[in-house]
């Protein structure tokens, strides 16, 4: 990983925790307000490929962790970035009032990821144009990917309550 990038990251932003777990990997822990500026800083440095936006539910700590994985396409003339390196940007938000600013203005492909996280975790993205349901047909009391949603219990309660039809005249 490029030493200069790490130095300029920590000099531009305070309150960042930067780690290098592997030589081609950089993990950045940022506060919620700094996410957009860190993303746009990294995009300016040639990391123009957003792999995905993910979310982890740390229920015991009462937090959601949003994860942005970035790398470079490596086509820009001046970019010193190597496409074989990934940057994982993480931010923690409280579980009670989970809102974060949408990153669609920087990366267009963040749109379906944020829509999915809104549906499956219940995180609100400010400035997202359509936070409509993406996958699910039914409504769930708790968004189903949260850790306190017990899918086995749900299946037993809900699908178990549906009676079989016409069993009395099946003689085979």
């Amino acid at each position: 990983m490029d030493r200069a990038l790490i130095d300029s990251l920590s000099s531009t932003f305070d309150a960042l925790r930067v780690e290098v777990p592997r030589e081609d990997r950089l993990t950045v822990q940022a506060p919620r307000d700094a996410v957009m500026s860190v993303l746009s800083f990294l995009k300016g440095r040639g990391y123009d490929h957003l792999h995905m936006v993910s979310c982890v539910d740390w229920m015991e700590e009462g937090q959601f962790e949003l994860v942005y994985v970035l790398s470079a396409y490596g086509t820009g003339q001046d970019s010193a970035s190597n496409p074989g390196e990934e940057i994982i940007l993480k931010t923690r938000i409280p579980r009670e009032l989970p809102t974060v600013v949408s990153s669609i203005s920087l990366f267009k492909n963040a749109e379906p990821y944020e829509r999915e996280i809104h549906e499956l975790f219940g995180v609100r993205f400010e400035g997202h144009p359509r936070l409509t349901p993406l996958f699910l047909e039914r409504d769930y009391e708790i968004p189903p990917f949260r850790k306190d949603f017990d899918t086995r219990q749900y299946v037993e309660d809900f699908f178990g309550s549906i009676p079989p039809v016409g069993e009395e005249d099946q003689d085979v």
Partner: peptide, 12 residues
């Protein structure tokens, strides 16, 4: 309009 094949793999 996806979602016709959603099984919730990552939860399972």
């Amino acid at each position: 309009n996806p979602g016709y094949l959603h099984r919730g793999f990552e939860k399972l």
